[in-house]
Design a protein around this nucleic acid. Structure first.
Lengths: 134, 134
DNA sequence: ACAACGTTTGAATCATTGTTCATATATCGG
DNA sequence: CCGATATATGAACAATGATTCAAACGTTGT
């Protein structure tokens, strides 16, 4: 306990203006805190997964393998426009990839982490029911 | 194979109004699609993780073990009010738990899945740098 | 009881984002 | 070339949510 407790460390301008209780721990935490850019990227990934429509799209692709926009819209219960907008976002963030054939656009998952993220979150919320995939 | 393709299945009212291309696959996907409630819960979990402030809070607790609000605010570079609001959300969703001692409130992670979600998303974005924890 | 402190909360503001409607692009069939 | 189809896109709107300020609450020490 020979740390300087109750010392105000200079952090962000609008950070806690009072003293910190355990300065040593705060310093240690700040040392391993991921960079702003990393935190933001992390937030972006989770933000992508935070919408029911996109979640259903991913669940559909998890099961269906490769599907066109109209089928995806039908399978997820949303308009084609909404599905297209959502798929655009997922495409931008490299979560899905598209294969064009004539006027059709076939989408599939581009990232193997999605399934794990999905199942992990499923485990978290308690609904640990298995989906029919192998 | 002997499925009725190009058939409009009755889904949501505002679903794709045109025909589907692969009706069999759409039906199969819809069959294993998680219930609305599950999808919503899933979205809520990811939504919690989609904010840089909350992400930093969780990263801090991942490293710091148990910390008071003021130290958490200092370690994550946000005001105590913002930290408290964020912690309230995390508390509501059982991601963190609080221990009260006098006027202090000590928070710690309540859920083991957070670390895995974190690392998995970290792997996804490519910044697969290790944080200092064991 | 009073003042200082750590924390919590509510209301207001501001930004972000999902959805919809309309339109645009591109391909297929005739 | 022309109409129909599949997808993509842009702008507008509504809803959601993060942040701030101000104030409240409970605790500690005098």
């Amino acid at each position: 306990m020979n740390n300087d407790s109750n010392v105000v460390v200079s952090l962000s301008p609008d950070a806690c203006t009072t003293s910190v209780v355990d300065g040593e721990r705060v310093a240690a935490v700040r040392q391993v805190m991921p960079a702003d850019e990393v935190v933001q990227d992390l937030a972006d990934v989770f933000s992508l997964l935070s919408d029911p429509g996109r979640l259903r799209l991913m669940a559909a692709l998890l099961e269906g393998g490769e599907m066109c926009v109209c089928d995806l819209a039908a399978a997820t219960g949303q308009s084609m426009s909404a599905a297209s907008h959502a798929l655009r976002l997922l495409r931008t963030h490299r979560v899905v990839k598209v294969r064009r054939s004539g006027r059709m656009a076939y989408y599939q998952l581009a990232d193997s982490h999605v399934r794990m993220l999905f199942d992990l979150a499923l485990a978290h919320i308690g609904h640990s029911e298995e989906r029919g995939d192998g």
